[in-house]
Amino acid sequence: MLTIAGHTFRSRLFLGTGKFSSAEILKQAIEAAGSEMITVALRRVNLDDPADDIMRVLDRTRYVFLPNTSGARDAREAIRLARLARAAGSGDWLKLEVTPDPRTLLPDPVETLKATEELVKEGFKVLPYINADPILALRLQDVGAAAVMPLGAPIGTNRGLLTRFQIEIIIEQARVPVVVDAGLGAPSHAAEAMEIGADAVLVNTAISVAGDPVRMARAFALAVEAGREAFEAGLGASRREAVASSPLTGLDFIQR
């Protein structure tokens, strides 16, 4: 089972809540996805309002509520927003998004590292959204990130695992869970991320903007499960060198 910051998850499909046509559809999509980690943009909700349409459909006894700082342009803004949210009862979990370019929404590595360092000190469980940069992932892990969330492609593009090679390196090196976030446009993309060993994926646009978001949520859930199963079963195809069936064949010169 997947464990992040001491919490275990049966589902490896995390869900974003933006862009849905209604709170009711969102609720059904969460059910169909079987997700246990749900991220919500703090800019989009009013934590003080019990009638807030999104907060009302999120049963916080069943899901980990992962607020995100979408919209923050630098570390200061992200930190301020995180503190205000926690003071309003959002909890310790935080998906850190520092995206100074409102067009591509690509994450700022320098500010993300700065904010992670500070927020970890303040006791947040920080899951930073990053470009698929292996060294950045290691630096974030070193300052205490609970997981890293590299992008497959820019947010909302549905382009799939364009960063596959970099993500493979991150997965190979990381000691914290790797959650592939953003750009996964089809269940096959999610399956691919899971097959190469990602610990989980986070999906939003591909589900919320689908013709039938609820069925698409189910499709992603199946794909994530299939991809994980394949990874654990041991995919043979992607090995770079031929592997002999008996490990020592050809090595009989070695003294036993």
């Binding site: 849905f20 703090l42 800019r43 919209g71 803004e77 927003l81 205000l84």
Partner: peptide, 13 residues
């Protein structure tokens, strides 16, 4: 979905 809040005063405090 009619969205009435998609920003937060917290960003600019």
């Amino acid at each position: 979905d009619p969205v009435r809040k998609d920003w937060d005063s917290g960003f600019q405090m």
